[in-house]
Amino acid sequence: MQFFFEILIGGLLSGVMYSLVALGFVLIYKASGVFNFAQGAMVYFAALSVVGCMEKGAPLWLALILAFFIMLLFGMATEKFVLRKMVNQTPISLFMATIGLTFFVEGFAPLVWGHSVRGLDIGIVDEPIESVLDSLGIVVSRFDLVAALIAGLLVTGLALFFQYTRVGRALRAVADDHQAALSIGIPLERIWAIVWGVAGFVALVAGMLWGARNGVQFALTFTALKALPVLILGGFTSVPGAIVGGLIIGASEKLAEVYIPPVMQAMFGGNFGGIEGWFPYVLALLFLLVRPEGLFGEKHIDRV
């Protein structure tokens, strides 16, 4: 039982890391209807920028601020040079454009900052928390817990920002209806630029945590693939959906990885590890068959 809880907690905490990436997707999709495949590449770019600035001699806090401005600029440039030129095209075209953007960033980021694998030290050690280990006998990583806390803070901050600031209100208006928002004088283009900036910020936080955990390397772009099932499970348009989806995916993925392969091995023989790659997708797919718009997504009504 102890083992079960250990895996469950580990899964939930790593699920929070998936949520972080999924959050970036949700923000942009909500505000501009663009399914931004480049979010994973942005995570990579952000992490590389932090490491790159630190290599140039900047301390961590300065590197983070610099990276934040780089991501802000990048987001705004994307909005201005790519998406604004594609207004009125089908969502699929926009999606493809972000795949193009993914390739661009995957080439651009290492070109500027170098492509070698580097570590990122943000001052939190990845070791079990002793008090929990002593009292319950469960290994809980301190790093994961801190990461979860940061994610929680980020989500609360974003929720407050959306709820109580002027810009946040404008963002929600744009998300609801572009045309109506435009007609009451909300500057659509500026709002989109802000959204891309915020998504860049989320990517920076995700990149920092993932980078500190696994090293800053090209594999960071694959975080997008981890976030996609979270996204369809929680619904493309829902911030709480991204969090709950992340928790479900994280926990079930780790549990499945431990408990399913032995069963399959008993049935067929051979080695069946590595189901983490597809299990979240199949799980999300099964959820979709029951709720086609995800757990918290907006119900889509078709009119002829």
Partner: peptide, 29 residues
Amino acid sequence: PSLRIKGFYLAVATLAAQFFIVWCLTKFP
């Protein structure tokens, strides 16, 4: 699944096929 889900949800669902099939081909000798 396309009978029930549409658009991007479907696109992500087809990724399930992508990963699952490649995994099967690797794991079933």
